[in-house]
Protein backbone atom coordinates (compact mmCIF):
# COMPACT_ATOMS: atom_id res chain seq x y z
CA UNK A 1 0.00 0.00 0.00
CA UNK A 2 2.87 2.33 0.82
CA UNK A 3 4.24 2.01 -2.74
CA UNK A 4 0.83 2.81 -4.20
CA UNK A 5 0.61 5.90 -2.00
CA UNK A 6 4.04 7.06 -3.13
CA UNK A 7 3.13 6.45 -6.78
CA UNK A 8 -0.12 8.37 -6.40
CA UNK A 9 1.87 11.15 -4.77
CA UNK A 10 4.13 11.23 -7.80
CA UNK A 11 1.11 11.35 -10.07
CA UNK A 12 -0.43 14.20 -8.10
CA UNK A 13 2.69 16.32 -8.42
CA UNK A 14 3.50 15.30 -12.00
CA UNK A 15 2.47 17.73 -14.67
CA UNK A 16 1.25 21.19 -13.87
CA UNK A 17 -2.45 20.77 -13.24
CA UNK A 18 -2.05 21.14 -9.48
CA UNK A 19 0.03 24.27 -9.97
CA UNK A 20 -2.44 25.76 -12.44
CA UNK A 21 -5.35 25.08 -10.08
CA UNK A 22 -3.49 26.42 -7.06
CA UNK A 23 -2.49 29.48 -9.09
CA UNK A 24 -6.07 29.91 -10.28
CA UNK A 25 -7.29 29.70 -6.70
CA UNK A 26 -4.79 32.32 -5.57
CA UNK A 27 -5.72 34.64 -8.44
CA UNK A 28 -9.42 34.25 -7.67
CA UNK A 29 -8.81 34.77 -3.96
CA UNK A 30 -6.76 37.89 -4.58
CA UNK A 31 -9.46 39.31 -6.82
CA UNK A 32 -12.28 38.73 -4.33
CA UNK A 33 -10.19 39.89 -1.35
CA UNK A 34 -9.29 43.06 -3.24
CA UNK A 35 -12.98 43.63 -3.91
CA UNK A 36 -13.83 43.45 -0.19
CA UNK A 37 -10.85 45.60 0.79
CA UNK A 38 -12.00 48.37 -1.51
CA UNK A 39 -15.67 48.14 -0.55
CA UNK A 40 -15.55 50.87 2.10
CA UNK A 41 -16.17 54.22 0.49
CA UNK A 42 -15.76 56.59 3.44
CA UNK A 43 -12.61 55.33 5.14
CA UNK A 44 -12.32 58.44 7.31
CA UNK A 45 -15.44 57.56 9.34
CA UNK A 46 -14.79 53.83 9.73
CA UNK A 47 -15.57 52.27 13.11
CA UNK A 48 -13.86 49.35 14.84
CA UNK A 49 -16.85 47.23 13.97
CA UNK A 50 -16.53 48.06 10.28
CA UNK A 51 -12.79 47.39 10.36
CA UNK A 52 -13.46 43.98 11.92
CA UNK A 53 -16.17 43.22 9.37
CA UNK A 54 -13.96 44.13 6.40
CA UNK A 55 -11.10 42.08 7.83
CA UNK A 56 -13.37 39.06 8.20
CA UNK A 57 -14.71 39.49 4.66
CA UNK A 58 -11.20 39.69 3.22
CA UNK A 59 -10.30 36.50 5.07
CA UNK A 60 -13.54 34.84 3.96
CA UNK A 61 -12.78 35.73 0.34
CA UNK A 62 -10.31 32.85 0.29
CA UNK A 63 -13.07 30.27 0.63
CA UNK A 64 -13.06 30.46 -3.18
CA UNK A 65 -10.03 28.17 -3.08
CA UNK A 66 -12.33 25.26 -2.26
CA UNK A 67 -13.65 25.36 -5.83
CA UNK A 68 -10.14 24.81 -7.15
CA UNK A 69 -9.23 22.14 -4.62
CA UNK A 70 -12.45 20.29 -5.50
CA UNK A 71 -11.55 20.52 -9.18
CA UNK A 72 -8.10 19.13 -8.41
CA UNK A 73 -9.60 16.16 -6.61
CA UNK A 74 -11.99 15.39 -9.44
CA UNK A 75 -9.35 15.73 -12.16
CA UNK A 76 -6.93 13.61 -10.11
CA UNK A 77 -9.33 10.69 -10.64
CA UNK A 78 -11.33 11.50 -13.77
CA UNK A 79 -8.17 12.56 -15.61
CA UNK A 80 -7.01 8.94 -15.48
CA UNK A 81 -10.19 7.86 -17.21
CA UNK A 82 -9.58 10.57 -19.80
CA UNK A 83 -6.05 9.39 -20.59
CA UNK A 84 -6.70 5.67 -20.19
CA UNK A 85 -4.13 5.34 -17.41
CA UNK A 86 -6.80 4.11 -15.02
CA UNK A 87 -6.46 0.59 -16.45
CA UNK A 88 -2.73 0.51 -15.73
CA UNK A 89 -3.33 1.95 -12.25
CA UNK A 90 -5.85 -0.79 -11.48
CA UNK A 91 -3.54 -3.50 -12.79
CA UNK A 92 -0.41 -2.33 -10.97
CA UNK A 93 -1.90 -1.13 -7.70
CA UNK A 94 -2.86 -4.57 -6.48
CA UNK A 95 -6.59 -4.06 -6.48
CA UNK A 96 -9.34 -1.55 -7.00
CA UNK A 97 -9.91 -1.04 -3.28
CA UNK A 98 -6.26 -0.25 -2.72
CA UNK A 99 -6.23 2.25 -5.58
CA UNK A 100 -9.41 3.89 -4.30
CA UNK A 101 -7.94 4.28 -0.82
CA UNK A 102 -4.62 5.58 -2.10
CA UNK A 103 -6.28 8.22 -4.29
CA UNK A 104 -8.50 9.29 -1.39
CA UNK A 105 -5.53 9.63 0.97
CA UNK A 106 -3.25 11.43 -1.49
CA UNK A 107 -6.15 13.65 -2.58
CA UNK A 108 -6.72 14.59 1.05
CA UNK A 109 -3.04 15.40 1.53
CA UNK A 110 -3.16 17.64 -1.53
CA UNK A 111 -6.33 19.21 -0.14
CA UNK A 112 -4.49 20.01 3.07
CA UNK A 113 -1.77 21.64 0.97
CA UNK A 114 -4.36 23.76 -0.88
CA UNK A 115 -6.00 24.51 2.47
CA UNK A 116 -2.76 25.68 4.07
CA UNK A 117 -2.06 27.98 1.13
CA UNK A 118 -5.62 29.34 1.28
CA UNK A 119 -5.56 29.89 5.04
CA UNK A 120 -2.10 31.43 4.89
CA UNK A 121 -3.16 33.79 2.12
CA UNK A 122 -6.40 34.55 4.00
CA UNK A 123 -4.47 35.66 7.07
CA UNK A 124 -1.92 37.58 5.04
CA UNK A 125 -4.27 39.43 2.73
CA UNK A 126 -5.88 41.76 5.36
CA UNK A 127 -2.37 42.92 6.26
CA UNK A 128 -1.65 43.73 2.61
CA UNK A 129 -4.96 44.78 1.05
CA UNK A 130 -6.65 46.76 3.81
CA UNK A 131 -3.83 49.23 4.59
CA UNK A 132 -3.01 49.53 0.88
CA UNK A 133 -6.50 49.99 -0.57
CA UNK A 134 -8.75 50.92 2.38
CA UNK A 135 -6.31 53.15 4.22
CA UNK A 136 -6.96 51.73 7.68
CA UNK A 137 -5.51 48.81 9.60
CA UNK A 138 -7.24 45.44 9.91
CA UNK A 139 -9.09 44.53 13.08
CA UNK A 140 -8.38 40.96 14.17
CA UNK A 141 -11.25 39.17 15.89
CA UNK A 142 -12.00 35.64 17.05
CA UNK A 143 -14.44 35.34 14.17
CA UNK A 144 -11.65 36.27 11.78
CA UNK A 145 -9.41 33.50 13.07
CA UNK A 146 -12.29 31.03 13.02
CA UNK A 147 -13.09 32.06 9.45
CA UNK A 148 -9.50 31.33 8.41
CA UNK A 149 -9.79 27.92 10.05
CA UNK A 150 -13.04 27.38 8.16
CA UNK A 151 -11.36 28.36 4.89
CA UNK A 152 -8.69 25.73 5.58
CA UNK A 153 -11.31 23.08 6.43
CA UNK A 154 -13.57 23.57 3.40
CA UNK A 155 -10.59 23.69 1.04
CA UNK A 156 -9.19 20.41 2.37
CA UNK A 157 -12.61 18.75 2.47
CA UNK A 158 -13.34 20.00 -1.04
CA UNK A 159 -10.57 17.83 -2.43
CA UNK A 160 -11.98 14.76 -0.66
CA UNK A 161 -15.34 15.40 -2.24
CA UNK A 162 -13.74 16.06 -5.64
CA UNK A 163 -11.93 12.72 -5.51
CA UNK A 164 -15.14 10.94 -4.56
CA UNK A 165 -17.07 12.70 -7.33
CA UNK A 166 -14.34 11.80 -9.83
CA UNK A 167 -14.91 8.11 -9.08
CA UNK A 168 -18.63 8.55 -9.65
CA UNK A 169 -18.52 10.61 -12.85
CA UNK A 170 -15.36 9.07 -14.38
CA UNK A 171 -15.28 11.74 -17.06
CA UNK A 172 -12.98 14.73 -16.79
CA UNK A 173 -15.00 17.40 -18.56
CA UNK A 174 -18.29 16.26 -17.06
CA UNK A 175 -16.92 16.26 -13.52
CA UNK A 176 -15.48 19.77 -13.95
CA UNK A 177 -18.77 21.06 -15.33
CA UNK A 178 -20.76 19.44 -12.52
CA UNK A 179 -18.55 21.02 -9.84
CA UNK A 180 -18.63 24.48 -11.41
CA UNK A 181 -22.37 24.40 -12.02
CA UNK A 182 -23.18 23.09 -8.55
CA UNK A 183 -20.87 25.53 -6.78
CA UNK A 184 -21.55 28.69 -8.75
CA UNK A 185 -25.04 28.07 -10.08
CA UNK A 186 -27.42 25.49 -8.75
CA UNK A 187 -26.70 25.48 -5.03
CA UNK A 188 -26.68 29.29 -4.57
CA UNK A 189 -29.95 29.41 -6.55
CA UNK A 190 -31.50 26.72 -4.36
CA UNK A 191 -30.42 28.58 -1.24
CA UNK A 192 -32.48 31.54 -2.37
CA UNK A 193 -35.39 29.41 -3.54
CA UNK A 194 -35.65 26.76 -0.81
CA UNK A 195 -33.25 27.66 2.01
CA UNK A 196 -34.65 25.11 4.45
CA UNK A 197 -33.58 22.33 2.05
CA UNK A 198 -30.54 23.97 0.44
CA UNK A 199 -28.71 24.36 3.75
CA UNK A 200 -28.05 20.61 3.58
CA UNK A 201 -26.30 20.88 0.20
CA UNK A 202 -22.55 20.48 0.20
CA UNK A 203 -21.27 23.94 -0.73
CA UNK A 204 -24.00 25.63 1.29
CA UNK A 205 -22.98 23.58 4.31
CA UNK A 206 -19.42 24.67 3.60
CA UNK A 207 -20.48 28.31 3.87
CA UNK A 208 -21.55 27.54 7.45
CA UNK A 209 -18.00 26.36 8.19
CA UNK A 210 -16.33 29.55 6.95
CA UNK A 211 -18.91 31.56 8.93
CA UNK A 212 -20.76 33.15 6.06
CA UNK A 213 -23.24 34.49 8.60
CA UNK A 214 -26.51 33.89 6.80
CA UNK A 215 -29.23 33.15 9.40
CA UNK A 216 -30.67 30.15 7.53
CA UNK A 217 -27.39 28.21 7.60
CA UNK A 218 -26.58 25.22 9.79
CA UNK A 219 -24.38 25.39 12.88
CA UNK A 220 -20.71 24.54 12.26
CA UNK A 221 -20.87 21.06 13.86
CA UNK A 222 -24.03 20.21 11.93
CA UNK A 223 -22.50 21.54 8.71
CA UNK A 224 -19.36 19.45 9.22
CA UNK A 225 -21.55 16.39 9.72
CA UNK A 226 -23.46 17.18 6.51
CA UNK A 227 -20.21 17.65 4.56
CA UNK A 228 -18.90 14.35 5.95
CA UNK A 229 -22.13 12.68 4.91
CA UNK A 230 -21.84 13.98 1.36
CA UNK A 231 -18.23 12.80 1.11
CA UNK A 232 -19.03 9.35 2.53
CA UNK A 233 -22.13 8.92 0.35
CA UNK A 234 -20.36 10.06 -2.83
CA UNK A 235 -17.28 8.00 -2.00
CA UNK A 236 -19.38 4.89 -1.35
CA UNK A 237 -21.14 5.33 -4.69
CA UNK A 238 -17.81 5.88 -6.43
CA UNK A 239 -16.25 2.82 -4.84
CA UNK A 240 -19.24 0.69 -5.77
CA UNK A 241 -18.94 1.83 -9.39
CA UNK A 242 -15.19 1.21 -9.43
CA UNK A 243 -15.66 -2.24 -7.92
CA UNK A 244 -18.42 -3.41 -10.23
CA UNK A 245 -18.01 -1.61 -13.56
CA UNK A 246 -15.81 -2.74 -16.42
CA UNK A 247 -12.81 -0.54 -17.06
CA UNK A 248 -12.83 -0.02 -20.79
Amino acid sequence: MFNVLLAEGRKALTGRSWLYLLGGGILFGVTVAYGYATSVEDTAAVTTQVRASVTEEVIRAWMTMHLFSTLFGAVFVAGEYHTGTISRSVLLSGGRGRLFAAKMIVGTVMGVLFGLVAAGAALLSPLVFIPTFADFSPEWTTVGWQTALGVFAVTALGTCWGVALGWVVRHQVASVLIIVLLTLGLEPYLLRAVPEVAKYLLTIAMSSVYLDGKPELLSVPAALAVIGGWIVATGAAGYQLLRTRDIT
Binding site: A7, K11, G15, R88
Partner: peptide, 22 residues
Protein backbone atom coordinates in the same frame (compact mmCIF):
# COMPACT_ATOMS: atom_id res chain seq x y z
CA UNK B 1 -6.33 1.34 -23.39
CA UNK B 2 -3.79 0.47 -20.68
CA UNK B 3 -2.06 3.76 -21.22
CA UNK B 4 0.75 5.92 -19.95
CA UNK B 5 0.44 9.58 -18.99
CA UNK B 6 0.59 11.33 -22.38
CA UNK B 7 1.86 14.68 -21.13
CA UNK B 8 4.62 13.21 -18.97
CA UNK B 9 8.16 12.53 -20.14
CA UNK B 10 8.80 8.89 -20.88
CA UNK B 11 11.25 8.16 -18.08
CA UNK B 12 9.10 10.05 -15.57
CA UNK B 13 6.04 8.01 -16.56
CA UNK B 14 7.96 4.78 -16.06
CA UNK B 15 9.19 5.97 -12.67
CA UNK B 16 5.61 6.44 -11.53
CA UNK B 17 4.77 2.86 -12.42
CA UNK B 18 8.06 1.56 -11.02
CA UNK B 19 7.23 3.28 -7.73
CA UNK B 20 3.80 1.66 -7.72
CA UNK B 21 5.49 -1.72 -8.14
CA UNK B 22 8.00 -0.94 -5.40
Amino acid sequence: GVNSFPTVRGHRDLRIWARMLG
